[in-house]
Amino acid sequence: MKKPLITVALVLVAAALLSVFLSSMMEEGPAPALSISLTAPMQRDCSETVQASGWLKPWQEAIVASETSGHITEVLVDLGSVVTKGQALVRLSQDSVLTDIRKHEAAVVTAKANLAKAKADAERARQFRATGGLPDGKVGEYLEDEQIAMANLGSEEAALAGERVKLAQTTINSIDDGIITARSAQLGATISAGAELFRLVRQQRVEWQAEVPVRYLSRISEGLSVDIDGPDDHAIQGKVRLVGPSVNADTQAIVYVTLPPDVPPRTGLYLTGHIKLPTTPDSSSPRFQPCSGTG
């Protein structure tokens, strides 16, 4: 008799619990449905950069060479010297040139005296020809001597001017503003015409020659901004000056980047940086982060 009573009791308890549960569910009401809202896409610009690396090199390099041969008597500048256009850099011995100038000056004086005499003779010959007091052949000789004297004077004056040019060439001047980056001029050395004496960075301007994968060339153009990781963690801002026309064996192209005038002209540094590509429009939900990328 006890087992049937226990079973009945358990059934009654389960029924009571079920009734309570159903009653509470009915009081709470139905579960809320999933809500969905629509948001219009936003138009914004995507920014992308290309990583690049390369050397700092001169914007343009100038070679200072001698126009004449001679013996170096003075070297007036050294490596790292900042020079201006027309500034004297080297002087050569002038002794032999000055001697030649004095010789030609004397020759010019003699030629002028000969011309004066020839002109006087030619003028008298013209007068005698008019009166018939001198044969035509002799008159012709005097007139010819006058022409020869004029030619001799012109020749001597030209030779004198040439020697003065040589004298000016004994002082070798800078051909532009810049900074000396190489020097081969040595005091006491004898040099020949055309010998290289110095190299200088024109205008003290250096540029970053960055290597960029060829696949980005169609998107890189003159004027794009460039961020360069300079020495001592100093950031440098530049602008694309030129995209190189050729590609090397590693499918890399050179992009020439102009640097600000206040950047020290230290060529030979290998730097890294990023070229900022033109922005492209992108439509996306405002809940997503703006697009960005680095090549």
Rank of each mutant, 00 (worst) to 15 (best):
D282G: 00
A159E: 15
G162P: 01
P245E: 15
N248A: 07
E105R: 07
G154R: 04
V90S: 07
F198N: 01
P290L: 15
W55G: 00
G244C: 10
T49Y: 02
Q43Y: 01
T49N: 15
T68K: 08
T131S: 10
A9G: 12
T294Q: 01
M25K: 02
L160D: 09
T279F: 03
E74K: 11
K112F: 11
P260C: 13
Q252I: 07
Q60D: 05
Q169M: 12
E144R: 09
E144H: 13
S174Y: 00
Y216F: 14
Y216N: 01
M150N: 01
V13Y: 12
N114S: 13
E105N: 08
S218D: 02
P213L: 12
Y216A: 02
Q203L: 06
T181K: 05
D233N: 12
V247T: 12
H274F: 11
L160V: 04
P41Q: 11
P264C: 00
V50M: 08
P265V: 01
A130F: 07
W55M: 08
A33V: 15
G178S: 05
K103Q: 14
D177V: 02
A210T: 07
L12R: 01
V108G: 12
Q43N: 10
V255S: 04
A116L: 07
I172V: 07
H104P: 00
R183A: 11
Q186W: 05
V64E: 09
A149M: 10
L79A: 06
A120P: 07
V263R: 00
E207T: 02
E156R: 07
I220R: 00
A195F: 01
Y216V: 00
T272V: 07
T272G: 14
P260W: 00
F128Y: 13
D145A: 10
G137A: 10
I179E: 08
A52Y: 05
A130R: 06
M1Y: 12
P213Y: 05
K276A: 10
L18T: 11
Q209T: 10
D95L: 05
R164Y: 13
Q127Y: 06
P260M: 10
A106N: 13
G223M: 06
H234P: 06
Q289V: 08
G273D: 12
E144V: 01
D177W: 03
Q169N: 08
S96Y: 03
K103S: 08
G154A: 08
R202D: 06
V226H: 04
T39V: 15
G140T: 03
I228Q: 06
E74T: 08
V139T: 15
K112C: 03
T99D: 14
L187C: 10
